[in-house]
Every structure is written in C-alpha cells, then in structure tokens.
Nucleic acid binder design. Structure first.
Lengths: 109, 109
DNA sequence: CATTAGGCCTAGCAGTACTATGCGTCCACT
DNA sequence: AGTGGACGCATAGTACTGCTAGGCCTAATG
C-alpha cells in the first residue's frame, strides 16, 4: 500500500464511512473502499480485519455471524456511538486537511 | 496533539514545505507550523527534532551549527533531493486526500 | 485436479508521534 | 540575587497502528 503510513488515524474514518452505506462484511468493505476511491485505497485483509475488531471493541461497530452459500460471514453494522464518532472524525479530518492545505498553500503564492 | 495518529506520514511533508520558505532551526519551524496552520499543528519539540534528524539522515535536509546570542543553533536547509521529495509527497497527499473525500462524499449525496 | 475467488483470522514487524525529562542560555520581573 | 519563562537542542521509552506473511476453509472455474 503506497499510503501506508499516511493511512494511520484515517482508516477508522474510512471504514465507518463506507459502512454507513449499509451493513457489510469485512471483505466487502475492502472492495467498496477500493472502488469508491478509484483504487487509491487497496487495503490488504490484514489491515481491515484487525481494524474492524478494534472498532467493535470500542463499541463503534456491532457484528453478527451468518452463513451464506456455505461460507461463514461476519456482518458489521455501525452503532449509534459509531455514527457519532464518524461525525467527529469527519470534522477532525476536515480540520486536519485544511491545516495541511494552508501550510502547503504558502508555497504556491 | 489532537491529530497525533493522523499526522503520521504527513509530518515530513509539512516540515519540508515550511522549510522551503527559508532555512530555519527546529524551534522556529515548530512556531511557523503553528502559525501557518492557525494552531492546528501545535507540535511538541519531541516530535520535531527526531523528525528533522530523520530527514537529514535521508538526505532531504542539510544542517549546520551556528551560535546566535550565545545560544547554539542548528539551521536546516532543504537539499535538491528534499525538493524532489517534497513534490512527490505533495502529489501523494493530494491523491490521498482526494481518495478520502471521494469516500466520505458518498454519504452526503 | 488445480487454481482462483471468496471469506475469515492472527503473530510479529516496523514505522512514527508523543511524553517525560534533561541540559543550557538569556531576559524580565520582583 | 533569585525566579520564572521563553528560547533551543536532545534522547529514551511508550503506544498505537498498518502491513507482511502465513494459515484455515468453501465454492466455482479451468
């Protein structure tokens, strides 16, 4: 992943955001992210699953097992706390991003 | 620092960018960053100095000691390699940032 | 039968920002 | 004279987090 280090602290936001489009399992999220970002975020599974577990442990997600076509699946949903966290994280991102731009912007002027 | 984890992978870009405005020492950079970002980036010294050492080790910065008002100072300059890295990092940031926005943007529509 | 895609998981590694602390100078105020 | 604060550099240790590499299983496709 090219944005390896940059992703830290933003992955949770991305996952929460993508998951509000509708409950899904880990592998599907990974695909959604890749498509919605036009390939910018092509995350390996070893990144996504631990992140989901972390978010569930924090109470931002809830999961439940199911079996589809003979395969075990774990579906995730965003909890109310998760939605709240998403709002705060989104605001924080805009703040951060704006900060970066205002620093970078000085060079172009 | 509120953006602790988010900063990872972006700090180098910020430092390089701020340093192209003119050579400066570590403490001054820390102040420049705080002012240029309107307080968004209020970095502790323990963050800035190791980062500068890292950048110098990578050949993106060059430093030289001086003494001003009886105080030792280490002034940094961006090397040609540093300027090149800055360009690439800036492009990568825009790519990354664009990716985040296109993922987040889906919720608003 | 072998491969690919779907689907889950974990241990260990690596990178990096922060905390805490230390050292030293200079200046302003009491 | 003494105290505090700003200036200025530095490092050890910690914590967090994403990635690599590997493993396990089923179903569909060549």
């Amino acid at each position: 992943m090219k944005h390896a280090e940059r992703l830290k602290g933003t992955l949770d936001l991305l996952l929460l955001s993508v998951l509000t489009e509708g409950s899904a399992h880990g592998y599907a999220l990974l695909i959604r992210l890749r498509e919605h970002s036009a390939g910018t975020f092509d995350l390996p599974e070893g990144t996504v699953y631990p992140a989901l577990h972390r978010l569930e442990r924090q109470g931002l997600l809830a999961s439940q097992w199911s079996v589809v076509d003979g395969r075990r699946r774990r579906s995730y949903d965003v909890t109310p706390a998760g939605r709240q966290a998403l709002q705060m994280e989104t605001a924080a991102w805009h703040d951060f991003s704006g900060g970066v731009l205002s620093v970078l912007g000085r060079r172009d002027r």
